[in-house]
Design a protein around this nucleic acid. Structure first.
Lengths: 230, 230
DNA sequence: GCTTTGCAAGAGCATTGCTCTCGAATTGGA
DNA sequence: TCCAATTCGAGAGCAATGCTCTTGCAAAGC
């Protein structure tokens, strides 16, 4: 089949439409996605879906990949709009974009940062997409480090094995950032997604009611903790 | 039915056995728990289960409640074994117990801290059980505060609405802890569960490989961040 | 023009959650 | 001690699911 035959184009359109409808179902019915329901909405018999996705898991994998990329893209876009030397603002833009994306699509967020779907194992394709968000944070730290505006800290050094783990990550995304600062960066990264997950998964109910404001404040605190300039 | 009739005892045993088998299935097959499979393992026909749980969701709710209590109990037990004035160690004991419990029962952890199961809404019963872990942290902060060993910080004050939220929580579990310290405590709480979730849900794959060590180090850092004495 | 390939439809299978009915067993008051 | 009320498990049955297989039809490519 040539890449640009009518068939190929129709196939791509169908694939997109299936994912689109699946996303809609995800948003309304939650995580238990029904292939047959998607087929019905598409006006097609259920077995037809299997021409495009070998199984329900494969459809979910495609949605997961898309979600990682959408989230990463949204964060990158927000970060790119901030002046390069406004390091704290860049971090806040990333954090805000991630939360906004997640709040707008809680079920897609749950797909990628919630409990892994049973029996499903992330193919290697997803890791590149999944790291887009962390790479952004690494880039900000790196830029701040070379600019010499990253506040030092007097944390004790990491134990050997963790130091190696952190160094390996650092070499890839933020080579000029000292290890203890990198560890604080990872901590902020965890705090960011932890906060979003807590909010979306209901752990903040009856506790923190003004989530926007609290989130922004906590992310600002994380920026200070990392050592980004005010 | 009298509380101690044969029927009542058998009923309690059956209920426990159903939950026990369900937990086993959870551990092997993941989150898609099959009532019929549980019934088969119990040597009983599927409709018999409905004498004990009105629906699959109700069984899951019972498991969730048990999980919250088991996790809370495990953390409380670990914390109680530490001298009262070793505030950092108390925090580390809580954090370690929570992680250990979660690593040993990833699917039960996912049940309570992962994506909420579709259609399911936490009944009010669960909130008391769910707050046992936070209360522990609050208690440690409170004790350290009244002992006067909680290091102050110069964080900017919280914005009004968040300050009210935090104050409400603080009044309940740690009345003598200043708001900004409380905010740092909440941050540590989020970091704790965020770290465990990242580990169990696969977000640390190919990044942090020595998870025990890294977790312990990060929790120690959180203790310092909160202001607990070394 | 003819063969190969891609596709949707439909029937079918095993499985699921849940409901209902029917006998058998336990219970607790007379 | 007997008897009505309650509780329970078995079994059949329903609507739905994921997935497979076969059958005809349309597009693609020689």
């Amino acid at each position: 089949m040539k890449a640009n035959s009518i068939r190929a184009r129709v196939r791509a359109e169908m694939t997109d439409e299936i994912k689109e409808i699946a996303r809609r179902h995800l948003a309304t019915d939650g995580a238990n996605l029904s292939l047959r329901a998607v087929a019905r909405d598409l006006g097609v018999v259920s077995s037809a879906i299997y021409r495009y996705f070998a199984s329900r898991d494969e459809l979910l994998t495609a949605l997961i990949l898309d979600a990682y990329n959408a989230l990463g893209g949204s964060a990158e876009e927000a970060e790119a709009a901030v002046p390069r030397d406004a390091y704290t603002d860049r971090w806040l833009a990333v954090a805000g974009a991630i939360r906004d994306w997640a709040v707008a699509r809680p079920h897609e967020y749950a797909l990628i940062y919630g409990s892994p779907v049973p029996g499903y194992h992330a193919p290697e394709d997803t890791v590149a997409a999944a790291t887009r968000a962390v790479r952004l944070l690494g880039g900000i730290l790196q830029d701040a480090a070379v600019a010499g505006v990253l506040a030092p800290n007097d944390d004790p050094p990491l134990p050997a094995a963790s130091a190696a783990d952190v160094a390996r990550v650092g070499a890839l995304i933020a080579p000029d950032v000292p290890p203890t600062t990198l560890a604080r960066g990872l901590s902020a990264w965890v705090a960011l997604f932890g906060q979003v997950s807590f909010e979306l998964f209901g752990q903040l109910r009856n506790t923190i009611n003004h989530r926007d404001e609290f989130f922004a404040h906590q992310m600002r605190a994380q920026a200070r903790y990392i050592g980004l300039p005010a």
